[in-house]
Simulated scan of single mutants.
Amino acid sequence: MDQRMLLVHAHPDDETIGQGATMAKYVARGTQVTLVTCTLGEEGEVLVPSLEHLAADKTDALGEHRVTELANAMKELGVTDHRFLGGAGHYRDSGMMWDEQRRAVARAETKEGTFWRADLLEASDLLVDIIREVRPQVLVTYDQYGNYGHPDHIQAHRVATYATALAAVTSYRPELGPAWDIAKVYWGAMSMNRMREGLRALRAAGDTTSFEGMDPEGEMPPFMVPDDQLSAVVEADEFAEAKMRAMKAHATQISVDGPFFALSNNIGNQVWGTEFYRLAKGVQGPTNEAGLETDLFAGLD
């Protein structure tokens, strides 16, 4: 088996929340899994009281700490090839703010060197270099909205999309290596139907605070994708526990008492062991009865 998968994410912890079970499953079956993280997550909120001094407005040492959290999470998932775009600290976390509609948007002012302000071609060339080295058949990243609007997620989508196109052009930057055309590009997604089921279970169990403001029968936020727009599902329930351990490794960012774990406790680990995708480039391979691929390499030789 010669399968290679590349994931492009904005901050440490994004990869585990979105595709932790997928990564663990493919590593276990012998696929080469490479993770590229674009920033250290320096602007993240610190959820551990004893580590609050690491915050950006204090000692500004959170990024270095999250490098270790990411390494520990990858150990839980079995991923041995994880890198930072341009090297650790090359791009800084841009941070975000909430607008009046409670949508994530870029801050009015961002610091020098933030990923949101990065030159698109420069950042893309750094990823072209990796693509041509790794030669993945499959790439996974965010949709054009960055799933929920974080500027670094949007920028990661842009960089991954542009780099994918540039890497395939034989005459483009030959010094970065032989051209490579990635066969399939996927955007990570969350099933709207699955989320409604989970919210119903939470509310039925008396939990009214997790995912506060989200009504299982009402309008869903933009990162919830209608199921008829999904292209693939990776069912990896046997790796849900590894994913949960990896999430716990990102201790400054994910609370064990938070909504992710409440959801898991109420409807079982399958809610996090099953991960969905939209096919953004390539041809959909064989599907199940629901019209979804069950393997991101489906249809590839």
Results as ranks from 00 to 15, higher is better:
216 P>I: 05
199 L>D: 08
235 E>P: 03
126 L>A: 03
65 H>V: 01
259 P>C: 03
74 M>D: 08
71 A>C: 01
162 Y>D: 14
182 I>Q: 04
287 T>C: 14
207 D>S: 13
69 E>Q: 03
199 L>T: 09
272 W>M: 10
60 D>A: 02
13 D>E: 04
15 E>H: 06
264 S>V: 09
145 Y>W: 09
55 A>H: 13
275 E>V: 11
69 E>C: 02
232 A>F: 02
61 A>C: 06
292 L>K: 10
223 F>L: 14
87 G>Q: 02
224 M>W: 02
22 T>D: 12
32 Q>E: 05
55 A>C: 12
173 R>G: 12
227 D>F: 04
115 F>I: 08
1 M>T: 12
168 A>P: 13
126 L>N: 01
166 L>E: 05
135 R>H: 09
58 K>Q: 13
164 T>P: 07
291 G>R: 03
232 A>H: 04
91 Y>Q: 05
9 H>Y: 05
272 W>Y: 10
277 Y>S: 07
108 A>F: 05
32 Q>T: 09
129 D>N: 13
53 H>A: 11
51 L>H: 08
166 L>A: 13
67 V>E: 01
133 E>S: 15
25 K>Q: 15
140 V>W: 03
32 Q>I: 00
148 Y>R: 10
200 R>W: 02
281 K>N: 13
266 N>R: 15
179 A>T: 03
59 T>A: 05
150 H>T: 02
30 G>H: 02
217 E>T: 08
28 A>F: 05
33 V>R: 01
232 A>L: 03
128 V>A: 14
98 W>Y: 11
237 D>P: 04
202 L>P: 00
208 T>A: 13
147 N>K: 12
240 A>L: 15
204 A>L: 07
261 F>Y: 08
244 M>G: 15
25 K>I: 12
295 D>S: 00
206 G>C: 11
276 F>V: 05
201 A>I: 05
50 S>A: 05
149 G>W: 14
137 Q>R: 11
229 Q>L: 14
223 F>N: 13
154 I>P: 02
115 F>Q: 06
199 L>Q: 12
98 W>F: 10
183 A>R: 06
232 A>V: 04
179 A>S: 12
46 V>R: 03
264 S>C: 08
139 L>F: 11
76 E>M: 08
52 E>I: 03
